[in-house]
Nucleic acid binder design. Structure first.
Lengths: 350, 350
DNA sequence: GTTAGCACTCGTCGGCAGAGAGTGCTAACA
DNA sequence: TGTTAGCACTCTCTGCCGACGAGTGCTAAC
């Protein structure tokens, strides 16, 4: 085990104590109940007595890696214990190549349907990680228009379709100040498209006040649309896999309610977004490490995907602190890579 | 009470017995626990003894409208009892004008954002009805193409955007057999659009085999897209308001799991769709009346919305059999009307 | 440093009695 | 004949008690 030693506690742990912690975390993750010395002794690769384990457990408790909920009845890992486990004991999380192939294959099948990508990614991630998944659609910091289209619905009503640089499509309704048929709209579009290509919401707005003959009502609606596509507030979170965690004992009562509350509002995104570092490294927040109070009893594994500086989305997993971090981290890492690759195809700076 | 008399039991019920049933249903809906004769006697508008109520309860039990889960401990309505209540005792469900105005106002605010309509409708409906809401996007039986657009992403990759008669938009990826720049694609689009306008998936496919010079790979993808937009299997259900029912005692244990399972798969739609009558009347399924076994313990209130024969969607509410049918029916009815009105604007046969 | 043994703690589970809510039935009453 | 008061009965719910067992810390021996 040749890891760096950022914490001094690590120095104090013997090899066997590390093994005890590793086994304890694994056992607790699957059983959900406090683990006793006898159970651990049985799972030990080399024969060792339960009394020995008890001594090690006492040492681990002393440095704050495990705790006992009740005087009798086994130990559970603390948040700090999980952290040590994830950083030093877990091994490198890499999805089995079988899983990788399966996921890639599934994605190939829906590749053409762009609309359902985000939903689909959420579903796959939830299933692979065995927890609740969270996915946001890819966003650019500043949405730039690539193309738009107007389709006549009624004399004074049109459908406005915006396409941005990163291939995001948005449909809006456009009320017209005067009657206009499809031919008129098409002609207008042909004139306008070259003039607004590559512009941001601000640019379009300045066009309105600037000396231009382009109709303001179209530009206004385009600006509104672009603004909505670039802003964080309007970012929707797609999630999947609720069934994976609502059945678990941790979320039996009111806590299950909290999860739903969390996923519904924008609080989750607001809390996590500032924490996301640039680059696509997977980030892990365990228990009290979490930025938001509401997440205090959760484990969160997140990563960004996309093309740095151009268009990015967030993708992650939410579960009880007692979750399989290995599964979650490996899943998130792989999915982020996969989505980034797909983004490459979609984004063109032309 | 001048209702029709389809059932003969109704004839047997005295006015007071009907009042007893009405009060019992109302009380049970809010409390969730069996209701006793004493409680009912206290709520009676005119002074009446609990013994009298007991006689009436016995009569109601005899005709199958109420039952006692245990020998002692109050009565609860049977599915049949609910049915009688909904059809004869509930009064006409009409949302308060305050609620109507509020909803209409909220909708006006997001009117322009077509993409989020369905999600938004689901949220509003869930909140108004206080249960889980279900909404499908509007679909036409046969999707007809109105317009399409190709946007060059890479030399051999394009974004294909389809717009149907009912203003549904779909984005797909299109692999090109040879290099093509935006100008080439635009020229191709200009030629093709007039030739495929108004066509169905089958029509487009027959174009492929027919003597045409239009590139088959574009037509193929368009056909695939149109097929997906018209078919029932690909219809996605949006839902909202899980938090409204998962907290309730009925769904505390494994039953809550069932709800999630139900909403995830396509089983729900498959079961309900055949039951939907034409026209936009609200339909109510209570308990064992439900088409699917999995819904045996639910109450379902549904309606179609849209333009008959052209483009329709489904919108409804799912809750425990013990739910406020008044709230749900009035909400569903109003939302269906509202969505139909909005559809009128979007759909043009031009 | 490891292990066996032992006394101790404390949560879980089954049984049991008492309280309370609700019922059906009967007899009296308007 | 319909309504009401009273009563004995049933059954659930709650709290209490004790047995059981899993797990612990400590000590002494290896």
């Amino acid at each position: 085990m040749d890891t760096l030693q950022p914490e001094r506690e690590e120095q104090r742990l013997t090899e066997r104590q590390r093994m005890v912690l590793r086994l304890l975390v694994r056992e607790y993750v699957v059983s959900g109940r406090p683990v006793g010395s006898k159970t651990l002794a049985e799972q030990f690769p080399v024969s060792v007595s339960s009394a020995t384990i008890r001594n090690d457990l006492a040492a681990l408790e002393h440095v704050g890696f495990v705790q006992q909920p009740h005087t009798s009845g086994g130990r559970i890992p603390t948040d700090q214990g999980y952290r040590y486990y994830v950083h030093h004991l877990m091994g490198s999380p890499e999805l089995s190549s079988g899983d990788q192939i399966m996921i890639r294959h599934q994605f190939r099948q829906v590749e053409a349907q762009l609309d359902s990508w985000v939903d689909f990614a959420a579903e796959v991630l939830a299933e692979t990680a065995g927890n609740v998944s969270i996915v946001t659609a890819p966003r650019s910091m500043v949405a730039r228009l690539r193309h738009f289209e107007m389709i006549s619905l009624q004399p004074r009503l049109a459908l406005l379709i915006l396409v941005t640089q990163e291939s995001a499509v948005r449909q809006m309704m456009l009320h017209l100040p005067e009657d206009a048929d499809q031919a008129t709209l098409s002609r207008l579009t042909d004139v306008m498209v070259p003039m607004v290509r590559g512009l941001r919401a601000e640019d379009v707005e300045s066009q309105i006040v600037g000396a231009t003959e382009l109709p303001a009502y179209v530009l206004e609606q385009i600006a509104i649309g672009l603004r909505g596509m670039g802003s964080v507030e309007h970012t929707q979170i797609r999630h999947s896999g609720l069934e994976n965690i609502l059945g678990q004992p941790e979320f039996a009562g009111a806590a299950g309610h909290n999860v739903l509350e969390l996923l519904r509002g924008s609080a989750l995104l607001g809390a996590l977004l500032p924490q996301m570092s640039v680059g696509h490294e997977v980030q892990v927040f365990i228990g009290d490490e979490n930025p938001a109070d509401a997440l205090r009893h959760f484990g969160v594994v997140m990563a960004t995907y996309g093309i740095d500086g151009e268009v990015t989305g967030i993708l992650g997993v939410l579960g009880p602190t007692r979750m399989s971090y290995w599964r979650s981290i490996s899943s998130v890492r792989y999915m982020a890579r996969l989505m980034s690759d797909l983004m490459e195809d979609l984004y063109s700076s032309s």
